[in-house]
Write a protein that binds this DNA or RNA. Structure first.
Lengths: 241, 241
DNA sequence: TTCGCGATGTGAACGCCGTAAACTAAACAT
DNA sequence: ATGTTTAGTTTACGGCGTTCACATCGCGAA
């Protein structure tokens, strides 16, 4: 069962890695619009058309880069989650949420590429690698919500409290996923994610600077509100560090 | 007191209007990256360098376009607000919030330009027209919050419930603005705006489509939660239309 | 060991782009 | 009528994504 990767394949993989590394450096240092095939090639000591042996277009390169960024973010969230005991479900939710914010405010251009306005021309097929990476990201939160539910900690609204159309879509999603969670739980899930995304996106995009230089405290108050919204306000804990 | 606008100035103004109209059409139909001086000039039957008589760079043209977009949005919010009686302050807040969402979901590229990740190279001086337009937009919400406060409807957290650093920044902002609102009220203001922005941005950017085809109902539940957060949950009213 | 082929990369070219400089022509003020 | 400001063009430079024809090298098979 040796892997038997040929020498050519190793070189190719190394080239791919370098391409994406240079592209990410351009993204970080020169902004999202500065990712350029010619620039990457120049920095690598080759010519632009050569890159077409690795990606069929600039778009595809960027799409592949977003997968790496998702993986980076997911790794950070998982390692933050895994230092919290398995039975402290709310502690795990707080940990991954804080890891999400930490990564995001530490990597604004990367955050913008993943969570900002989608590049119009960037085709993201629902079954493509980018969509899979996004699903892995969402899965981290969803798994914890599942554990919250099975621990009986999750307070969900009654069925008739939700708009009927919304509940139909929630039910369709619950069926598609096939887990034990009721549709109402996915409303709570979506509402939580919307709030976490909102405060982080505004901070990363600088839309809060009219009042806050530093928004970490606002994020924490949002987390506390979130714990109350989930019905487990007593299990909120401030960050350890 | 005649205006005495010269013929040249009228023509110039008309040209400026056409430039921005064509630029906006490109933004809407071809995406944010498609706004191009050469394309605009071609469509107008002139050559690209001629546009430098009106804007010193493409960036400045885009900055000027964002001001128009803000004005468009602000006009929609104000007219929605002004059909609600002056004494129904919460009704006005709901009206402008819904108008914000309606405009945003109806104009995704425009929303992205204003509220998405800032174009890195786009210099927005704090005293420039773009910043003023943004302040006009925020002022709509802030004015209503002021009226909520003077009506005694606004429930704000106690001073010691807030993080000290956050409270310092809030106090600095309150002083800068100089209104009658206490710092804690601006926390409530920021928290509300963050939630409204979050749900609208996610909807516009398509980040909720994994569960919702249509997010209007989620937005309404967020508004209801917001009314509860403000301490006036009984004054929430569903949209009239 | 040699042959052939696929993988990798180059060079030239096409049509875009923003922008600067020199120049022309029209409109305006005096 | 003259001089000046304004609006626009032509030309040019460098950068971009992408295509195509061509070269070269590594590697498996005869």
């Amino acid at each position: 069962m040796t892997v038997a990767i040929s020498r050519r394949d190793r070189l190719r993989e190394e080239t791919v890695r370098e391409i994406k590394a240079v592209a990410r450096r351009q993204l970080v240092e020169e902004g999202p619009g500065a990712i350029a095939l010619r620039g990457i090639a120049r920095e690598m000591g080759m010519t632009a058309p050569g890159l077409y042996r690795y990606y069929s277009s600039l778009e595809e390169l960027i799409a592949s880069l977003t997968v790496d960024l998702y993986d980076d973010l997911v790794a950070g969230m998982e390692s933050a989650r895994d230092v919290v005991p398995l039975d402290d479900v709310m502690g795990r939710l707080l940990a991954v949420s804080r890891a999400f914010r930490t990564w995001s405010v530490g990597h604004p251009p990367e955050f913008g590429l993943i969570f900002g306005q989608p590049i119009t021309a960037l085709s993201m097929p629902p079954e493509g690698p980018a969509a899979k990476a996004a699903a892995r990201f969402g899965g981290i939160f969803r798994e914890i919500f599942g554990q919250l539910w099975s621990s009986g900690l999750l307070r969900v609204p009654a069925e008739d409290e939700l708009d009927p159309l919304m509940r139909r879509q929630l039910a369709a999603y619950a069926k598609r996923i096939g887990g034990p969670l009721p549709p109402e739980a996915y409303y709570v899930f979506a509402a939580c994610w919307v709030r976490v995304y909102g405060v982080v996106a505004m901070e990363v995009f600088g839309k809060l600077r009219w009042v806050f230089e530093e928004s970490a405290a606002l994020f924490e108050t949002e987390l506390r509100q979130l714990a109350r919204f989930l019905g487990v306000s007593e299990s909120y804990r401030p960050p350890t560090s």
